[in-house]
Amino acid sequence: MRKDPARCFDLFYRTGLARTTDPTCFEELVEYADELADYKRSHPGDDIGTLLLRSVDSGQLQGQRELRSMILSVLGAGHVTTVQSVGCAVLRLLENPDQLASIFAGSPSWAQSVNEMLRYDSPIQATVNRYATEDMRIGEVDVAKGDVVLISIAAANRDPERFEDPERFDVTRPSRSNLAFGHGTHLCLGAHLARIEGEVALEMLFRQLKDLRLAIDPAEVVWSYGPMLRGPRELPVTFSR
């Protein structure tokens, strides 16, 4: 039943994020979700999987199909974007060791630093497609009824009217809200958890591996998973055992 996290990430990528999707990967994801549900039924605990199973039993979730969808949503939303976010953050901190040193010196805090990391490298680059319900004009662009409207979160987080010198990575930048997790009724439900994950993961990583270094030039990093997501395809590093 156990599956390598890297394999899960690859399955999600090949199922819905790659330009050419592989339907067999979705079948494997579905099988994994069902196996995970079966395992949690026989091994209940204080976890989300058990909570979802109880929701089926109480009628809040309508059967195995909805349970499967919820499990896949939690796995996808809770893992894929976190991988992108942490990967980008590690790259930027290794590129800017002086800023990493200032964080460990106590100013700024990890929370403030993670906010800048999310602004600078938005894990989710754009919203899902929206469709104009009537003719309209946005800025200097005419949009006809039925046209696709795609909102660039990445561009909004580099808006010079909101952020001074937005192309500069600076963990000491005064904290301002950004659109990394969306806005309003569409704000990501896991936003607070994701921020804490970033703070804890990065502090533990750099505290444990004090000589962590990039093994390649930053310009050689391959960015992938677009157009909706963006992050390093891999991030070769070196460190002492």
Rank of each mutant, 00 (worst) to 15 (best):
A144G: 08
L118V: 03
L72R: 03
I138W: 01
V83P: 06
T81I: 11
V86Q: 08
N115W: 02
E95N: 04
M70T: 11
E95T: 07
P97H: 14
Q60K: 11
F104Y: 12
A89P: 00
V56F: 11
V141C: 09
Q60P: 01
L67D: 00
M70E: 14
Q112K: 10
L72P: 00
A101K: 15
R68W: 07
L93E: 00
N96L: 08
S42Q: 14
I103N: 03
D121L: 00
R92D: 11
G59T: 11
A105H: 09
D135K: 06
Q125N: 02
S102D: 08
T50H: 09
R130G: 09
T82N: 04
N115K: 05
E116K: 06
D142F: 04
V90D: 04
G63V: 09
G87D: 07
W110D: 03
G49Y: 13
R119L: 01
V114F: 04
E116Q: 09
G59W: 09
A111L: 09
P123S: 09
H43T: 08
L52N: 03
E116S: 07
S109I: 01
R54I: 02
S55Q: 15
I124E: 00
L93A: 02
V141G: 01
R65N: 05
D57Q: 15
D135V: 01
N96S: 15
A89K: 03
L91H: 01
L100N: 12
D47Y: 09
E66H: 05
L93G: 02
S122T: 15
E140N: 14
Q62S: 13
T82K: 01
L61K: 10
M117P: 02
V80K: 12
L100H: 12
N129A: 14
I124S: 05
T50K: 08
S122H: 02
G139P: 07
V86Y: 11
A105W: 07
S69L: 07
E66K: 03
N129F: 15
D98S: 12
T133I: 13
R137P: 06
Q125G: 00
S107W: 00
G49W: 11
C88R: 04
E140M: 07
D98A: 13
S73I: 14
R92H: 10
L72K: 04
T81K: 11
V83L: 14
Y120N: 03
Y120H: 12
I103S: 02
V90H: 06
G78C: 12
L118H: 02
I71L: 08
Q62A: 13
A144D: 04
W110H: 02
I138H: 01
F104I: 04
